[in-house]
Design a protein around this nucleic acid. Structure first.
Lengths: 345, 345
DNA sequence: CGCATAACTGTGTTCGAGCACAATTTATGA
DNA sequence: TCATAAATTGTGCTCGAACACAGTTATGCG
């Protein structure tokens, strides 16, 4: 029950607190027999250093570098800053500062530029959204060689050992399938990939695989699952053609946050009876969710991803806690009735 | 940017740190003009005391009393202890201890008895599930008069000012309705209240109201919404009769965690085509969710409720943060595909 | 043995806030 | 005017860990 201090241990071992300290920190200059005695005592009473006292003494200002896409260029990222600020507020008792660098999510060079600036700021640890696989890989490798811990979220760079917060994309595809299956009779289904301006290909593929696997597992489903890839600029025309080519369509799964494009079209074409499932609580999507054109949204919770990523890093800095290698958030199913609380900051 | 210390302020004001300290803590014995000068400085530079140093000095062991239903008497409460332990782990750097008192959720006298024991343990703050309205009201009043802060979760005692973590029950009823509506054609719907051994009447009524309000808002729905109350002991027979009396039934909403009773019956009566929505991730429920007899479960997240409730109390103790009066958790929609991550501790 | 050097051990200060108590200044009254 | 009380202000120690540095004991070698 009682919390032992270094002084207590020193007393028990019959040595001074300096010696105990040297043992604890492996700073050498301790006689073998004394070291053993102290070490035995430490394990016996399971000594836990008082982290409050340690932090007071060290009195260090921690600097965290944050490298994420610019929310003004893609609103999806806006809520990340909320999550980051929440984490900071939670640790306001400690002197934790952040330097934020926002990059253009369509521009790899811009990513590298801002990463350079980030490096210049000499951060203790880094939180990053590693959008571009190739560039991120080399960047992460560099940080590893510098021994700077990096937390990533949104998408995993499998080639790296950096910690990752995200979701199981395959499983989220399965969830979309389950939802569409439960709200529609057995007709044709479509997976629509609307190309964002930047490559999200791996994301979309994983979701497609998951979606298909659900229907593969299903007995007695022999309708078609169509796939449609749309480039961002040609969205409207190509989608309209696709809809007209497939009049049997009962459900559509949009693999990213652009479901509102499809919703807009379904309304203008008077095809709102087609069920629609997409991702992310952008205000455009939420509006269509509320008027019923979108049936379900899957919440990727970027706010929580950023919050947790930062929290783990800070806890590592101030309490020396281990950073989880990989943490997959639960996947939230959102409809018009439960959306509101998920929108608050 | 720089963090000012009491010493800094003392220097700036041309007084000693003792005087500054007296001003900060309103301990009097300070000349009026000096006090004003110091106070002006404090606000000007927005002095924030170093909470790490404060905690080290105070070096206080905080005791938290926890009064919740015994999980061995109702498995619903099992995950609460996980949440409590998570919160404790998060604040392991501080000396926070809990005394847990488990009461029989069917027995008001037992609640009062354990509350008495709780009082004896002289807690600094209290976390409690105030199941019984009348008894909880007087107990909470007592704590208020003793100036002991209390956090409550699961159900709100509206007569009290104690902080509350929970969910919007009315809205969760609406969510259930929306879900049933989206997965079934327009047939008759039933709300089934399975009496738990203890009174949850308010809970159930709110959910029923929400459920009905959804269908009221709906244009062109003119089927019937039936209500059925079942006492715990007579569950099976009464339910069977109810099902047979209403062959048109398309969907059932069970207003608490006992949906598995209905699921079991639907299977034995070969009526699994009836859609079923219930509450809570008890293993019995999850099994029926996975085999398809239950379509959706609404997650009340008792783990998170307990976690947050405790976290707010601890942050109040160690960082002097304000405890939110009321916090309504988002309501999670669970199907067989997204259930797994919600089950982990 | 003596003395230098290495090996080891103990002491004292720091971090910032909080508080007891000492020290100083001001007020009061005979 | 001066003693004394009252009001005000300053000093110094504490919390526990970390670390610099001083102090002590052991070892080696001429």
């Amino acid at each position: 029950m009682k919390k032992y201090t270094i002084k207590d241990i020193a007393q028990l071992a019959g040595v001074s607190k300096g010696t105990v300290d040297r043992v604890i920190h492996n700073r050498g200059n301790v006689a073998k027999d004394v070291e053993q005695k102290v070490r035995a005592l430490l394990t016996e009473i399971n000594y836990q250093p008082n982290l409050i006292a340690r932090n007071l003494k060290n009195n260090k200002v921690f600097t965290i570098g944050v490298l994420i896409p610019d929310p003004s260029l893609d609103p999806y990222w806006a809520v990340c800053m909320d999550g980051i600020n929440s984490a900071l507020a939670e640790f306001s008792a400690f002197d934790v500062r952040i330097n934020t660098f926002l990059y253009d999510p369509t521009d790899t060079a811009d990513f590298l530029d801002h990463n350079e600036a980030l490096l210049q700021s000499e951060p203790d640890v880094i939180l990053m959204v590693p959008l571009f696989y190739k560039e991120a890989t080399s960047v992460l490798q560099h940080y590893q060689s510098l021994n700077i811990k990096v937390g990533t979220f949104n998408n995993q760079i499998t080639s790296s050992t950096a910690s990752f917060i995200g979701q199981d994309l395959y499983q989220s595809g399965r969830i979309a399938a389950k939802l569409l299956h439960s709200i529609s009779s057995t007709g044709d289904m479509a997976i629509i990939h609307i190309d964002e301006k930047y490559k999200n290909a791996v994301h979309m593929q994983e979701k497609e695989k998951g979606f298909k696997s659900y229907y593969d597992d299903l007995k007695g489903f022999d309708n078609t699952i169509l796939t449609c890839k749309v480039k961002y600029v040609e969205t409207e025309d190509k989608l309209r053609d696709f809809l007209n080519d497939h009049p049997q369509l009962e459900g559509i799964f949009v693999t990213n946050s652009k479901a509102f494009h499809v919703a807009r079209l379904l309304e203008s074409e008077n095809k709102t009876q087609i069920k629609l499932v997409g991702y992310d609580l952008l205000s455009d999507n939420v509006n269509y969710l509320n008027n019923g054109t979108i049936d379900f949204l899957i919440h990727q919770n970027p706010r929580q991803q950023a919050y947790l990523g930062l929290k783990y890093l800070i806890e590592h800095l101030v309490f020396d806690k281990q950073i989880p290698e990989k943490f997959l958030l639960p996947i939230d199913i959102i409809n018009s009735e439960n959306v509101t609380p998920f929108l608050r900051p």
